[in-house]
Structures are given as structure tokens and as C-alpha cells.
Design a protein around this nucleic acid. Structure first.
Lengths: 263, 263
DNA sequence: CTCAGTCTGTACGCTATCGCACTTAGATTT
DNA sequence: AAATCTAAGTGCGATAGCGTACAGACTGAG
């Protein structure tokens, strides 16, 4: 595995963990309709209120769900990577959502026409079960974001954000400016400067002009608030089949030293 | 309509708006299994991680979904009343959730064994569509809670909370101490005292030892942040059939003066 | 009526974060 | 090499909410 974040790997739908665990029968219906797309940093997959045309199965890209306020400031509600789907409103039946989906880390994805997914969704047991469970996991991430915003320090929130992002990347380097991170977390850029400075002085991360590298993941995990673990555990619980094909149950529990005294 | 919050009305499943809009065919399957229950203030329908035994269709009760932190402090993630369901994890497939559901306002509900709902869920088009859309609305409420926690003042959050609660009650009086409200919002009791004091001085509410009465709803709506409207509009959009039988599309848009200049 | 319990009001120092202004330092272009 | 731009660091007063402590007020039980 090289250090390049997005090497020109031949894209493969199975890089998306949800697609990876779909039974063969479902795949036969779905795969012919999958359309590979390349997602650029900052691109919006949908705007608030847009009628969605496709659902996106991310493979190497990361997408943030952002709520943009009337005055223009924003807050991230959830992060989606190759563990998930962007556009749940399509099969949830709501058609639109009151938030934006923007590419946080560029990469690839496959998309599927809304009509196709809706049709499949109504006849497919495995697909439905999988998607509903994913949605519940997403729901957990959202509610935990609310909790974290209320109770935890910016340092902790940055840790959580870094870990959530890292779990969705093949490397431990994030291409991201402090300005953008601030947008995601809904705080000032200067606040991120300070928090990131703290983490760097503690030897947990290293950063430089739009690149953040996590150098001590266990250290981050020791400093993050409980929110991260809640989200991760729910993912593992709800999507064990997905986790089996995913690197991150491992990459994350390898270092669970602080857990050993609890369960 | 008397001023008593929970008069001994003969309970009726149709008081729950979701049940109210289910087609006859679905009802025939479901209603025989419905069990009326009386929910006491403070009672927990489930604890974090509990395997749910029933889904609850609230009629006159209000239930808060709370996340309880390791140190014991808590934050409300969503409010559920007769517009909704408690226990979505059952049909979402996740079985449990990492939060508590506690009764915020006592009243009645009907519950349904998990096995029944799961069985119905897999053969029922209308029921499924309805529940998925409801879940998306709930999801919006959660994400908006996250946004609100990040960006808005306690005064505004209290307004939002009051309006969300009011929408789920037949009266404009809430039986609720400042202490409990503080728990819901995840803030100090003294903070609520101050915020409530502000609203009272502004002539919007009146309160007294565990009773809050909204006396100027338009005033509250003028002071609340955008979050409330986002949630309400999503509800209306996702569940128009439900809204048709509900008082609150009306009760809430009657006073939408501040909207008239926008859309 | 009194007492205990609960609910609400107030005060004060503390801290995290904000908003704003400005500087420094890499990176990119010319 | 100089000019320009973007990213990151710093400083400072303002403020919202916290933690703590305590005081008043209403309620219900005896």
C-alpha cells in the first residue's frame, strides 16, 4: 500500500463494503446499473432540497453531510466513506434531505439511478435489511454528533473527527486544511489551529499546509471522547458482515488498550 | 378540549398519527395485536443497549430519546410524540439503540410485540413506506439537534424545545421542571432558569413550579432559530398524509408571519 | 403551623470559544 | 528572484455557559 491517497486503482464496486456483502443474486440485478464516477474535492453530490437522481456507493472518496445555516455557517452532521451510501433519502422514501453532501476527500464511487434502487429495494430482502441497518448506524452517528457538540471540547471533537475520517481512508494522511476542518466541525478556523496544535505537541499528529498525518492513533483514541467508540461499536454491531470485509474493525480494535479494563 | 393534559379519554390507536393513516388492510393485521399502555413520567421504555421487546405508538404521551454519557450527564437527541414511534430499531433491523427512551410527559400509548411488527414490516408496502419516511423525519430532527447544539444560544434552544414539545401536546401547558428541561437540553439547571426568565420577561411564556405555559406562541416562533422550522417542514414534507390528520401543521403555520417574506 | 422537601433565583469566578485584526511562513506564479 | 496567494499562528477583549454555593419561595405532610 503506497502513500498515495488515491492511486489509480482499477475501481471495483466491491470496495464499497455494503456492496461487498450483498449476496450474488442481488448483485446481478444491481451491478449492471452501476456507473463509476470520480468525485472531486469540494464537489456537491446534492444540495439541500435537491431531488436526488442517484445513490452513491463510495469506494475511495469521503463525503460529509453538512447542514448549512441561513447565515451561511455550517456544521457537519455525518461522515460517509466506503462503509456507506450517500442518498439514503432515495430508498427511505423522502426523496430529498435538508442538507448538502460534499466531497471531503476526493476519490471514486459508483452511482445508481434512483429508479433502480427503489425498484430493487422493494423486492430485495438482503438489500433492504442491509440498507436499513446502515441507516441506523448513520442515525447513531448523527445523534452522537449532537451529543458531542453539546458536551465535549474542541480537542476531543477534533480527535473524533480525525478518527472517523481515518477509518474511511486507506492511509493515515488526510488532505485537509484547518479552514475546511473548521467548517466541518462548525467552529472557527483559529480554534482548529489551537486544537491541532495541542494534538501535535502531544505527538499524536503532524500537519503541514493542508495535510494532516496521524502518527499515534492509540494516542488519539486515548484522548477522544466516548462518542467515537459509540459510533464505531454501533457500526460493528449493526453491520458485522460488512466489518468482516473491512479493515477498520481491526485497525481500530488493534489499539483498544483502554477498553481492556471494561469489557 | 379541557385544560387537563391527560383527561381519561378512551384511548384510541388512531390518536397516533402514523396508525391513523395506515390503510384499512394493514390495520386489520396490526390492531388486534395492539396493547394499550399507560406511560408514567420518568419511566424508561428502553435503556441503552436493551433488546427491544415492543415498538410504541404514542397517543398522548411524549418520549425523549436521551443519550447518557459515561459520567452520567445526558443530552436529548430527539422528541417523539403522537406523530411517531419509539423503537425504530426493531424494524430497522438493529434491535437495540445506544440511548434511552424516557417518558417526558405522561400519557398513553399502544405497543406492539417486536415479532409482530417485523412480520408486518416485511410484507407491508404502505406500512413500510410510512415508517421509513417517519424515520427519515426523525433523522432530520437528530441532525438538526446537532446543528442547534453547535450554533445556537440556550434561549433559542429552549424555544425550539418548547415548540417541539408543544406540537406534541393538546394544551399549551407543559408539566416540566427546569431541572428536567436542563437534562433534556444537556445544560445546567441555572442556565434554563435564566433562559426561561428571559422568555417570561418577554411575555412569551409563564411558568411556576414545574408548569410551563406558552402564552405567546408567535413570539416564540419569532425568537426560535431556524432549526425548528427545518424539522417541522421536513415532517410536513415527508408525512403529508399524517399531517392531514394532525393538528400541528395548522397550529404551527397559523402563525408563520416571519415566513411570508421568504417563500 | 411547622418542618422538610422541592423548585426557582442569584451571585461569582472560571474556562472555552468567539470575533476580529494582524503576522508569519510555505507554495505558486511570473 | 520577486510577487502573490493560501495556510497557519498569535493576541486580545468579549461572552456564553459552567461549577459551586447559597438564599428564597412554594408545597405537602404531620
Amino acid at each position: 500500500m503506497s502513500t498515495m491517497p488515491n492511486p489509480p486503482t482499477p475501481p471495483n464496486p466491491r470496495q464499497n463494503h455494503l456492496l461487498a456483502v450483498l449476496p450474488e443474486a442481488e448483485c446481478e440485478h444491481l451491478f449492471p446499473h452501476l456507473e463509476p464516477v470520480s468525485l472531486k474535492l469540494g464537489e456537491a453530490l446534492y444540495e439541500s432540497g435537491d431531488r436526488l437522481s442517484h445513490v452513491y456507493f463510495l469506494t475511495t472518496a469521503i463525503v460529509s453531510l453538512l447542514y448549512v445555516m441561513e447565515n451561511g455557517s455550517s456544521a457537519e452532521i455525518a461522515i460517509v466513506g466506503n462503509e456507506g451510501i450517500v442518498g439514503v433519502a432515495l430508498f427511505m422514501g423522502g426523496e430529498t434531505m435538508p442538507n448538502r453532501a460534499v466531497v471531503q476527500s476526493e476519490g471514486h464511487a459508483y452511482r445508481l439511478k434512483g429508479s433502480v434502487i427503489k425498484q430493487e429495494f422493494h423486492r430485495s430482502g438482503a438489500l433492504q435489511s442491509l440498507f436499513l441497518r446502515y441507516t441506523q448506524a448513520l442515525l447513531t452517528q448523527m445523534s452522537q454528533t449532537a451529543v458531542c457538540n453539546r458536551h465535549h471540547t474542541l480537542d476531543q471533537q477534533l480527535c473524533r473527527w480525525l478518527l472517523l475520517s481515518l477509518d474511511r481512508l486507506p492511509t493515515n494522511t488526510l488532505k485537509m486544511t484547518q479552514e475546511l476542518i473548521a467548517n466541518m466541525l462548525g467552529v472557527r478556523r483559529e480554534g482548529v489551529t489551537e486544537a491541532a496544535g495541542n494534538l501535535q505537541h502531544a505527538g499524536l499528529i503532524h500537519y503541514n499546509r493542508g495535510r494532516v498525518t496521524v502518527v499515534d492513533r492509540p494516542g488519539l483514541e486515548a484522548r477522544v471522547c466516548e462518542c467515537y467508540e459509540v459510533v464505531r461499536k454501533e457500526f460493528c454491531r449493526l453491520l458485522p458482515d460488512v466489518i468482516a470485509v473491512s479493515p477498520w474493525a481491526v485497525s481500530s480494535s488493534q489499539h483498544q488498550r483502554r477498553q481492556t479494563d471494561r469489557d
